[in-house]
Write a protein that binds this DNA or RNA. Structure first.
Length: 157
DNA sequence: GCCAACGTTGGC
DNA sequence: GCCAACGTTGGC
């Protein structure tokens, strides 16, 4: 079966692609997602080897690089830790509400591709990220969209 | 820092 | 079940 393609948002001052690159094994779990739609993607749709656009939100909105799913959805244990900022008393090990995946660093773009740039690129007109009011932190991306963004990077390096 | 858009909560 | 109030996201 073919891989799926995704975009995952993170505020770089919380967790950046550099942080992922510097993580043990260049791998990290993706914790703290507390939105049902995003959770459903992780729990039900993401598979090992799926490819990910790593998006930096807020500070300098841009696609910063790529990653791969290396572990499919499993319960987000930070929801069970009262000391975690992601604590949710409604979630228990017996009945987990929130899920995470593990991702591994693949590449960091020499020059992040800015949101403003993406808005000008032919073929990305229907990209979910570019829709008004779109806040979903995990979004499906088509193969074509993924490929266009990768090719932009190659042109600029 | 502002604020529009969205998701969630809770009173009724 | 409706919807106002509130909190959060995230671009600018």
């Amino acid at each position: 079966m073919n891989a799926n393609y995704w975009l995952m948002k993170s505020e770089p001052n919380q967790f950046s692609i550099t942080d992922l690159k510097n993580s043990p094994g260049q791998t990290s779990y993706w914790d703290g997602v507390r939105n049902y739609q995003a959770r459903n993607f992780m729990r039900d749709k993401m598979r090992v080897k799926d490819r990910v656009l790593f998006y930096h939100s807020v500070v300098k909105p841009s696609v910063a690089g790529t990653a791969r799913i290396v572990k499919a959805g499993y319960p987000d244990f930070t929801a069970w830790d009262p000391k975690s900022k992601y604590f949710d008393p409604k979630s228990t090990p017996e009945n987990p509400i929130w899920y995470m995946v593990d991702i591994r660093f693949e590449m960091q773009f020499a020059e992040p591709i800015s949101l403003a740039k993406l808005r000008t690129v032919p073929g990305l007109e229907n990209m979910m990220l570019l829709r008004k009011g779109m806040r979903l932190s995990i979004q499906p991306v088509t193969y074509q969209e993924f490929d266009i963004i990768i090719s932009l990077e190659k042109l600029e390096t």
